[in-house]
Nucleic acid binder design. Structure first.
Lengths: 147, 147
DNA sequence: GCTTGCCCTAGAGCGTGCTCTAGGGTTTAT
DNA sequence: ATAAACCCTAGAGCACGCTCTAGGGCAAGC
């Protein structure tokens, strides 16, 4: 009922290199070794790895993930610390979500413009304004106007 | 009606270093120089910089932003290319949003557990299962159980 | 005219997260 | 018993996005 590193890599979608790197970085202290020094991943290990990926995918730093894993290894006494760490991280994720949503709106605004029937006219207008700005400031026009 | 690099930095929230780095990287071909070689940012430049930040904040690679800016510099003929580039990027952003939402759910699940009145009991249970996995596989228990 | 504070470039350095190489042992199948 | 396919570590290397240093010029106030 254990998996080799290759199997674990396949199941997690991480590369073998990454798994070893994570282990080296102290993220996988729970992974046991067999008599030959080979890693043996249990299902429980994969669950923990899943949590690690979850934190990594939300841009938690390796060092912070290590802190979290250290708490987990220390048992139920560290529930409060885990909660504090995750709560702080949660706020960052929510903030990132908000920023992403806002930026997406702006990208969509541009996309709508480019997709509109009068896209070329609107882009020409934008360009005209930018050029006017330059002119007003007595600066050279950097745009390669071919029309 | 122009801004120095310091003012542009303040207005964009980027460091002066970053602005110069972006310029070096080909992201700011539109920024003019005065007789002394100093950069002069117009309001139009700041708008373009805003777009650049938007793309950067949604994890577009510098090289791809440069491609986009190159299109912009080439004028209205490149509307189709801009659209294709942004459309592709949009999909990545949407995918990232979905992943973030999913990961947030999992973080919230953990947080709920840690915040529950019976948090310690539930964590102990989790731990018990992980230990059982190890035992079943004939592996050592890596958890520092102090209870 | 001198100080202070700004601007410039080129290029080195750094932090993060992998990714790969070299060198070597283990396991499995034939 | 040998080949093929796996495993290991240590450490080098790489990609990216800055960040800073060195060395030097420009501008404004006293």
């Amino acid at each position: 009922m254990t998996y080799t590193i290759k199997e674990a890599a396949k199941k997690t979608g991480l590369s073998i290199y990454t798994l070893r790197f994570y282990d080296k970085s102290g993220l996988l202290p729970f992974v046991a070794r067999n008599a030959s020094g080979y890693r043996e991943f249990t299902d429980g290990d994969l669950q923990l790895l899943h949590t690690i990926c979850c934190l990594k995918n939300t841009d938690m730093k390796i060092a912070d993930i290590r802190t979290y894993i250290t708490y987990v290894m220390q048992g139920p006494d560290t529930v409060k610390q885990r909660q504090a760490l995750l709560a702080k991280h949660r706020e960052k994720v929510v903030a990132k979500q908000a920023q992403l949503a806002q930026n997406l709106q702006e990208i969509d605004y541009k996309l709508d413009m480019y997709r509109a029937p009068d896209a070329v006219a609107r882009v020409k207008d934008e360009l005209r304004l930018a050029k006017a700005d330059k002119l007003l400031a007595g600066l050279a026009d950097p745009f390669q106007a071919t029309h």
